[in-house]
Amino acid sequence: MNKSMLKRMTHRTEFWIFIVLIIMCLLIQAISGGQLFEPTTVVTILRSMIVDGMFAMVCLVIMVSGGFDLSFPAIAALAYSLSTTICLNNGWCETNPIPGFILAVIIGAVLGMLNGWIIAYFKLNTMIVTLGTQTFFLGISMGLLQLKEITSTLPKSFKALGTSYLFEVYNSRGLRSTMSSLFILFVILVIITSFVLNKTMFGRALYAIGGNEVSAERAGYNVRRTKFILYTVAGAVSGFIGMIRVCLASQSIPKALVGKEMNIIPAVILGGASIFGGEGSVFGTVCAISIITVVSNSMLLIGIDTYWQDLFNGAVILVGITVSALQAMRRKG
């Protein structure tokens, strides 16, 4: 039994992704002359993982159900820019950020509902539907509502929340870095996602639908309702993540998240999710997001120009999916 468990473990993508993460960290640590594991670097990397990591959770849950969502950054962008604009115009959120968050969550949920309605009730190709909603949402924020960038006038409570920290660290040269308190929210979302996917019938429904939709329906799941709820919740969470981004960046730029999905989706797939649905785990996704974040944050440490960052990201993903494709072919024989 023990041996078979070991075998089952080594057959999983998550296991290898984890190994790759460790090897890569050690490698960068060696090349950069020990800069990676300095407390300031670690804190910076963890901080820049908050938003991407949270988006990855949303993306993972949708992928497990067999969907392919391109619209979650657009939902987040519309939700936060509309929410901050409303807050600004009404003078809300100067001391308490919660109304802004609630507003963004509601807006996100409404937008997610549109996704859910089209996908669940018309059974269309999710990628094309979300490509449409993504563009549609961008059109709403930039065309219809003409939402403006909010930088210096951003409500104070958002800024305060973004700069609040759990602890501060100093590196050998006396540089200070702070661990944002919003990191806690990332950890909470990871725990919730893991709980929902593994310990609730809703989560198992997502795996079941991703594995075989017809069977899930026959087994007694209400597939339509499940999908509708899924996309609505995903929209709400996206809106929430959008607000976190506003706080961290101390600004609200409607266009800021355009194209973000193209970085998140490949990372989630790198972490073991299948675009055909039914596969994927929180652990693998967190590892994959860590790899991407570590790579892009340590470019400067190992002396590479930041303009090469995109190329490195692309290369990591290309190599990652190629290796896992080769592995799948070998397993098949």
Binding site: I128, G132, T133, F136, L138, G139, M142
Partner: peptide
């Protein structure tokens, strides 16, 4: 235009 393209596609 984005609004129109997205809406039209849907």
């Amino acid at each position: 235009a984005s609004l129109i393209w997205g809406g039209l596609l849907l």
